[in-house]
Computed example of a mutant assay.
Amino acid sequence: MKSRVSERGQITLPKAIRTKLGIRPGTIIDFDVVDGRIIGTKKEFQDPIAQWRGKGRLPKGFVDVDSYLNEVRG
């Protein structure tokens, strides 16, 4: 597959490639030059909160978040 560079230096990734790799608007692609070739790597979005979701623990004596917040907020 081929794509032509526009006057603004932009290229269009062919639809078949976008579909195969799951590239949608907003997808980040990291470009590098290796041995005279352009290598584009799709960067997977990672939710920075996801790894911590569900890991929090309430201090002893509290059964829910609302009671804890009411206590600490006075």
Rank of each mutant, 00 (worst) to 15 (best):
M1V: 12
K2H: 15
V5I: 12
S6E: 10
E7H: 09
E7K: 11
E7W: 03
R8T: 11
R8P: 00
G9V: 11
G9C: 09
G9L: 12
Q10H: 13
I11F: 14
L13I: 15
L13C: 03
P14Y: 04
P14N: 05
K15P: 07
A16H: 11
I17Y: 10
R18L: 12
R18F: 02
R18S: 06
T19G: 05
K20I: 02
L21D: 07
G22C: 10
G22K: 06
I23G: 01
I23K: 00
I23R: 00
R24I: 06
R24G: 00
P25W: 00
P25G: 08
P25S: 12
G26A: 01
G26N: 11
G26I: 02
I28A: 06
I28S: 11
D30A: 14
D30N: 12
D30C: 02
D30V: 14
D30K: 14
F31Q: 12
F31W: 07
F31V: 08
D32F: 09
V33R: 11
V34M: 08
G36K: 09
R37Y: 11
I38Y: 13
I39L: 14
G40T: 10
G40I: 07
T41D: 11
K42F: 02
K42M: 05
K43R: 14
E44M: 09
E44L: 14
E44S: 10
F45E: 06
F45R: 04
Q46T: 13
Q46L: 08
Q46S: 13
Q46A: 09
D47I: 03
D47S: 12
P48V: 03
P48M: 02
P48Q: 03
I49N: 06
I49Q: 05
Q51F: 03
Q51G: 06
Q51P: 01
Q51R: 10
W52S: 08
R53E: 09
R53A: 12
G54I: 01
G54Y: 00
G54D: 07
K55C: 00
K55Q: 03
K55L: 06
K55W: 00
K55F: 02
K55M: 07
K55T: 08
K55G: 00
G56Q: 12
G56E: 07
R57Q: 08
R57F: 04
P59G: 02
K60E: 15
G61C: 07
G61N: 12
F62I: 09
V63D: 14
V63I: 11
D64L: 14
V65P: 01
V65Q: 15
S67Y: 04
L69P: 01
N70Q: 05
E71I: 02
E71Y: 15
V72C: 13
V72F: 05
G74Y: 00
